[in-house]
Amino acid sequence: MLSRVADGLFWISRYIERAENLARIADVYLQAELDRAAGRKVDWSAILQASGASESFATCGLPVNASTVTSFLTISEENPNSIFACLNRARENARMIRDQITTEMWEELNRAWLELSGSAGKSLRRKGPSEYYRELRRASHLFRGTTASTLPQGDARDFLDLGMYLERADATSRILEAQSLQKDQGDVEERWAALLRSCSARETYRAHHHVPLEATGVLGYLIHDVKFPRSLHYGLVRVGEIASRLAKPEDQVEVEALVLAIRARLTKAPVAEGTGQALAGFLDVWQAELHRLADWMTERIIGGKLELPEVSAWHSQQEQQQQVAERC
């Protein structure tokens, strides 16, 4: 497979997953905001921080509140990682490698882009943010399901899955971090319920834990569970499996060692202390480790960082692509 194609597949998947998880975070805290009765106050700056958007938000000079933060995370043009921006890039990547994915996958992604970004997205948001975020999660799930049922096993599937699990391992940790950084930790039971809900984990967790919700159980589930598809452990293990499948023979030892080292550190997650600064600090380290792992895979598995042309060269490339006359 072309390195550029592998890179495209990997990033389609990451952007879709990123958009889905932004929708999860925004949605769950918008719901929490409604629970004023419980005396809980949402700390929106913590959400910006966990989403890695504090700096770009600060340059906009807006007050921090539910509406500014959610719109920044969802549609803002100032935010290079907004849901809109993620959808645009996922679709742009898919268009570039359109010949490598199935028609069904392309149509699902293209439909999501038509309906959920740009002007079509505006009409949808008029229905209310909750409905919009639900639609967005659904679009992501439809894309995954369509992929699973139309794309044969092989490298293309592996690169898509690699991007998905890597991004999810990162995104779930950001959902946990957003919770950890909340100043007003509010009603405990409600907080754990919201956290589970934001990861679509409330029902599956309940099915196996018949005791009141508490830190060790909930955090342990979202971090260590070996079967729950959004846990950090699960994501990392899948990343490791796929990476070994894709790696060249001479890189096998290295990729396994890298993943094992991160797994070993994961076992030391401070779950017993509940959310708070200790957990937030731990999650920061986890995200940095995933970042290094992603860099390694780009270099060794995808086939080297694709050299992005200088800005001026990039513009002339765009211009030339348009100049080539097609006689129609």
């Binding site: 742009e92 268009r95 570039m96 010949d99 028609t103 765009q318 692509q321 348009q322 080539v324």
Partner: peptide, 17 residues
């Protein structure tokens, strides 16, 4: 192909498929 910015890019990917 010249790339995705070209007006005929749809056709290029269509033919590749």
């Amino acid at each position: 192909t010249p790339g995705p910015m070209n007006s005929a890019y749809f056709e290029h990917s269509f033919l590749a498929r």
